[in-house]
């Protein structure tokens, strides 16, 4: 395997809340290869956006972050603000969920590009800035005639294209796209996703696509990481994961998608776990249809399957770590209460 662009090791991100620290990202490990598109999926509050921002060090003040984000042999965690700022843009790009408000309404598109390019390449002359900006815009389908217009003269889809061009113009090695199409309609969504998927062919940029839309991942991603409660519970080749999910949460999540064949909606009962006071053992066990006794007692240990997939679930072992009788089906609390009575 080629050298990864970014290696995340044991990353933890804590938000301070009045009720105590919330573990938004909990011991996450992840590699992103050059030119690869990695999908990160999960419910709202699973920590996928925090993971994306944590990689860039773009977290609100007072957020705790620990672990390693290795980029070209250097750990971005603990880097000074100024060093990190130099990385953002030319090395690591980020695009956001709501394109409507991400461009400064008082500045022309031209001024956004000029500011960005001058910041990181102070020696470029006007013509070169213009040439690079128009090239990046052209790749995302924005005609050069609109270079001098203001943000409010563009639709949401076009603004997201501009945001992508604004990230691409600096030629980052990794582009983190945080739910880039959530605020857009389906046709525009498909166009944007195709655009992102084409990036690896045209520029070799790796993409980390954060989304809750599994259809997007199936269409555009090489690999997928499924997050639950701040942890990556399953990660592997996107097609294999979709064809044969090994973690019960992935399976339930896939069953919850809607298609033409859907006759009744499938939902996962219960709510995502509290990140401040998480349940003991596996975070998913209170909602898991396959839960065993061990799941409520011990956190699962990550296993690597033969096909290269990683999974955190006791059903995939390791058997020697499961105590006697641990594989018995978990008796739910409601039932236990009934028995006592």
């Amino acid at each position: 395997m080629t050298e990864p662009v970014v290696s995340v090791r044991d990353l933890r991100v804590y938000y301070g809340t009045p009720r105590g620290p919330a573990r938004a990202v909990d011991r996450v490990a992840l590699d992103i290869a050059p030119g690869e598109t990695l999908g990160v999926v999960g419910e709202s509050g699973s920590g996928k956006s925090t993971l994306g921002r944590g990689i860039l060090g773009l977290l609100p003040e007072g957020t705790g972050i620990a672990g390693e984000v290795l980029y070209q042999g250097r750990n971005l965690v603990g880097m000074s603000k100024e060093e990190l700022r130099h990385m953002r843009g030319p090395e690591l790009g980020l695009i956001f969920q709501e394109p409507m408000t991400r461009l400064n309404p008082l500045l022309r598109i031209q001024e956004h590009f000029e500011e960005t390019l001058r910041q990181h390449h102070p020696k470029l002359d006007r013509d070169e800035i213009r040439r690079r900006a128009l090239e990046a815009l052209g790749r995302t389908g924005i005609p050069p005639t609109r270079y001098k217009q203001y943000p409010h003269e563009f639709s949401g889809g076009m603004r997201q294209r501009i945001m992508i061009a604004l990230a691409l113009v600096l030629k980052p090695k990794l582009l983190i796209a945080d739910e880039p199409t959530t605020a857009l309609d389906v046709i525009v969504e498909a166009q944007i996703i195709r655009l992102l998927a084409d990036l690896k062919k045209t520029s070799g940029t790796a993409v980390m696509l954060i989304t809750h839309n599994l259809g997007i991942v199936a269409e555009a991603c090489d690999r997928v990481a499924v997050m639950y409660g701040g942890k990556i519970v399953e990660e592997g080749d996107a097609r294999k994961v979709f064809a044969n999910p090994v973690h019960p949460y992935t399976r339930e999540l896939l069953r919850s998608t809607i298609s033409l064949e859907t006759k009744s909606l499938h939902t996962i009962p219960g709510a995502p776990p509290s990140l401040i006071t998480p349940p003991p053992g596996c975070l998913f066990h209170p909602r898991c249809p396959d839960a065993m006794r061990v799941c409520a007692l011990k956190a699962p240990i990550e296993q690597r399957l033969e096909d290269g997939r990683r999974v955190q679930c006791w059903r995939h072992g390791p058997a020697e770590a499961i105590p006697d009788g641990g594989t018995e089906p978990l008796e739910r609390e409601e039932i236990a209460v009934a028995n006592e009575a």
Partner: peptide, 13 residues
């Protein structure tokens, strides 16, 4: 505002 965060994400000083 969102464009402030976006500018920071582009490494603007």
């Amino acid at each position: 505002d969102d464009y402030i965060e976006a500018a920071r994400a582009r490494g603007i000083r």
